[in-house]
Nucleic acid binder design. Structure first.
Lengths: 198, 198
DNA sequence: CACAAAACAAGCACGCGTGCTTGCTTTTGG
DNA sequence: CCAAAAGCAAGCACGCGTGCTTGTTTTGTG
């Protein structure tokens, strides 16, 4: 891919991608028609097809895009975290919010769609492998714990998996209050389990 | 619904439902065409349509069916659990297996499909509300803990949510070894956190 | 200023899944 | 034993989404 001289083209492509993940989160895989995505982006179907010849191409790019978006969201929000005793709770909350936002919804639709689409599956598993490792490292860092201590690795992974599960539970019904209690409790458990911070 | 005099009809309906959730787990929502389901059940499309006039009717019934199946699966497997110190680990393993089997895969496809289908959504949320409560009560019972103790409720719910998350992670890639370590660790944490058993 | 290439718009044909209709077979009840 | 009803098979029409082709506008360059 060479550098597009037209900013307009870039902007259109960008909007197409944003509309794609937006539609994915709202309407699901089957509902995210190229026509729908194009309409949301404010361009014609032909224009969308110009940028992404086939539907597969569009959503393959969308996979990358949603990965980047989740990455930057995490980076953005992990900046301002308290450092006192309530840090653990804040970190858990951040992680859970990562898995309950619209980006995760889009990613979830991508996952299940990838179940029955070989092409998509390949894109998604490689992305999720990278992303998963990154999130794990970030969680270690934010919690200020050492992975070499036995049990820590599994505990952190369990935290991430629990966050995924909470996100899943939040799919159909708003789960806010139940979630808050669980986050509180889990933060307590984490502090009691791997309290090796200064 | 009156009692069907023909066993044959009942059997056909049964096979239709089983094929539906089987197709759901393997091919996903969009791939589970009524033609596909009918073919898997060994009946014609018209026969399927005779039992379930519309596709919605078929999968509405499938929602009930997968709920019953998960219920009976749990009941069936919760019978033979050890009672020694390794019971906690066995219980956690059982719960996680409930969320990693084909039944959960089918349910997951149902969930995400229900995201963009109002009819289906209604069926799924009511089912999941009941089922969730049941699983929670069962988990309390199997673990032998008292919900009135503060924190216990949240901890058990966290366990269920983590199981959901593990099931989700198991969607695209086989996750067996990683899962085993997390289950071990989780059982340790549970024992340390809510050890009120004799 | 002109020309070429890219971006974009609009329309068309094909495949496919659903729902309906028609005809046949088997079972149930009088 | 016969008629009515239910179970079941096969075919058809409609809607819709995708991919392709053609035509128009905009952008960058000699």
């Amino acid at each position: 891919m060479r550098q597009p001289q037209q900013d307009r083209s870039r902007a259109t492509r960008q909007r197409l991608l944003e509309s794609a993940i937006e539609a994915l989160a709202e309407l699901g895989w089957a509902g995210s028609t190229v026509a729908v995505v194009a309409e949301r982006a404010g361009v014609s179907r032909g224009a969308a097809q110009h940028h992404f010849p086939t539907r597969e191409d569009l959503f393959a790019a969308a996979v990358e895009y949603v990965g980047d978006a989740r990455r930057s969201w995490t980076r953005e929000h992990s900046a301002d975290l308290p450092s006192g005793p309530e840090r653990t709770r804040a970190v858990v909350d951040l992680i859970v919010r990562l898995y309950t936002g619209p980006l995760f919804r889009a990613a979830l639709h991508l996952w299940v769609a990838a179940t029955s689409d070989e092409q998509l599956r390949a894109s998604v598993v490689t992305l999720e492998a990278h992303l998963g490792r990154e999130q794990h490292k970030l969680a270690l860092e934010l919690l200020g714990v050492d992975e070499s201590v036995p049990g820590v690795r599994e505990t952190v992974q369990a935290t991430l998996d629990m966050a995924r599960g909470l996100g899943l539970a939040n799919l159909l019904t708003d789960d806010g209050k139940r979630r808050a209690g669980i986050i509180d409790r889990w933060a307590e458990i984490l502090d009691a389990t791997l309290n090796v911070r200064t």
